[in-house]
Amino acid sequence: MNRINKLFQEKKGQILSVYFTAGYPNLEDTVPVIEELVKNGVDLIEIGMPFSDPVADGPVIQHSSLIALQNGMSIRKLFEQLKDIRQTVDIPLILMGYINPVLQYGVKAFCQKCKEVGIDGLIIPDLPMDVFEEEFKAVFEANDLHNIFLITPQTSEERLRKIDEVSTGFIYMVSSNSTTGAKTSVSEFQKEYFERVNSLSLKNPRLIGFGISNAETFANACQYANGAIIGSAFVKAMEGSEPLGQKISGFINSIATDI
């Protein structure tokens, strides 16, 4: 069974998912970061594949992407780094990035490589649903990869239902219509949105992301979904000169003392 499905079957709430940019702060940090996150009890990891023009990202992830690219990060390099990851890590791993580098690598070769190293799903924000269905779905399925779709407060009910139908892993609920890292607290408007989505009895579990940055926002989000995703706040916490393990355990402990 795909590890994403297994996770949601076994754990219904308080799922903590963390995003980081591969090759940041240093090129060879990718695997150590994953291992530290696992050690600290994270449930799911999104590994960012840096892109030169990340239009859906705010300043923090733009910066980490730029540094990662300057460090020499590439999809080829990432697959090399991940080749033995399944010997030490068994939580679900997702690759997140923009469509263009995937197209250049070749969609089929990319998916096969994902399967080979043990990737469970993909988040490609600028891959439209219709293109996914026509050109990507079959090869994703053949390699047991879930495509994770985003929804926002502006997503219509009709489209939500369609996304639920096409989704196989979970649905990524973007907390507010924004780029990553925008400051949010759970407002009345968002509550209304989360409750509205919850009332639709969708078949897929959901994680809330964008603007989740500390224990309070994480706990709030967990009231309305199976868990939440932390991106920019974690990437930001990786700055600074302390040892990687210390930065990571410090941050994760500050978010969820009880996992």
Binding site: F51, S52, D53, V55, L69, S74, I75, R76, Y98, I99, N100, P101, V102, L103, Q104, Y105, D126
Partner: peptide
Amino acid sequence: SPGVLHSSRSILMQTDDGQV
């Protein structure tokens, strides 16, 4: 070469790794 930049599939200047 063919690729996606600014939300459409077209031709763009890029590296082998698909960085613009």
